[in-house]
Design a protein around this nucleic acid. Structure first.
Lengths: 130, 130, 130, 130
DNA sequence: GTGGTCTAGACCACG
DNA sequence: GTGGTCTAGACCACC
């Protein structure tokens, strides 16, 4: 459950939090019925404002991933694992499609694209800045 | 030179325009010395606010891709083709790295990532929504 | 005395409990002098936090519906039946007024409202979800 | 488009705003394609904090009722009228069902319920407090 | 000008 | 203790 938010990568912090939780649920690190850390605790962990965490949690409630148990906290819903597994692939595929679409529409060949992807992957493995 | 902006893909419209022009220059569709369409004409073509086009052109001037020819309009600089060819790969690689980074940091394997990429590529070829 | 609380209908659980007891006293199911179940027992029955039951009982004491008999538990007061009969209509009327007010203030006609009420009543008779 | 929020009626202000807009769209007072008042203007009109209005507008975006036109404001979507007409009846019916259910489950007869409803309606017409 | 994000902090409802 | 609501105000992105 440990991770960090990057305030400078363009994706809003609350969305980074929501995406991270969805990934965690998708791979079983967070099971149905479990509680997520309290708003206040998560805010301390990530060194962000509690309202920012609350926004992420609220969005996840709207998506049916989390459920309020009044007075005790927020729990992962029973349907969440299914939802998140579906969402995980979708989130990544969607971003990839957007990049591929731009590249191909602007005349790059698939070979060039593959080469770039290989480069990018190598850079990520080496820990380069995104 | 025909293309459309997608107001819903997260990338600011002015940046989509600038990126498109750089791609066009990189593959020679727009040669050094040629003029780009006027702000007004481009705005009409893309059904976009003229200020948005102006913003894209201004950014391109700052990058040395376009230069003002007083009275006649904006022209592609002589150095632009070289700049844009270099930028083209970089623009795509950067977006790819960002996606890969998120995916790998959240526990997807490279195999899963490859599968998703293949999916995404297939979807783009078939013309699916990005 | 059997009933269930609905954690998702907007009314706080402690208030659902208090309302239920008042209804029970109003129609004689619970007579003056009788004891209500202990906080613990009621909490088990309803699968609810004991503090929540305690809160309901406390509110009812403040309203003069229950009184503490030291050592033996909480009993229905002699005045409770009268109080609760009066309150019963009031509780329902108040909620109805709130709904009607919103509807009429937002342009629904009384005819439309009547139709919706008839619909709602039919649904309740058929046991639909509230 | 004029209305007032009541900070003391239990319904959150942002929800009162959202509900009001849905009612307005449902009865055609606000047509598809029209812009809603800006966050700041609405905040002044209702004498509430801009963030509160923004929250209502954001919820309506999530429901597909409003749509962001970047830089120019928020517009009513084309599907909104249909959505809101459906929602209008649903919002009222749902509240009514909840009241009826409670009343009937606790032993009130339909005749008593009808009498209470008539009373409530009379009170609302006379402008009594809800 | 528009909305969006984030921070900060008060207050309340609930258990 | 939990989350929710609301206010206040700074800063940014976009048009």
């Amino acid at each position: 459950m440990l991770f960090h938010v990057d305030p400078h990568n363009g994706i809003p912090i609350y969305e980074q939090i929501a995406r991270h939780l969805k990934f965690s649920i998708a791979d079983g690190a967070l099971a149905a019925g479990e509680h997520v850390p309290s708003v206040r605790e998560m805010a301390v962990r990530l060194a962000v404002n509690p309202n920012t965490v609350a926004r992420a949690y609220r969005d996840l409630q709207n998506e049916g991933v989390l459920e309020l148990e009044r007075g005790t906290g927020l729990a992962v819903t029973t349907q969440a694992p299914k939802l998140c597994k579906a969402a995980r692939g979708e989130m990544v595929r969607q971003r990839l499609q957007s990049v591929f679409k731009e590249a191909l529409q602007h005349g790059l060949t698939e070979d060039e694209l593959n080469a770039l992807a290989a480069d990018a992957l190598r850079n990520v493995r080496k820990g380069k800045k995104s």
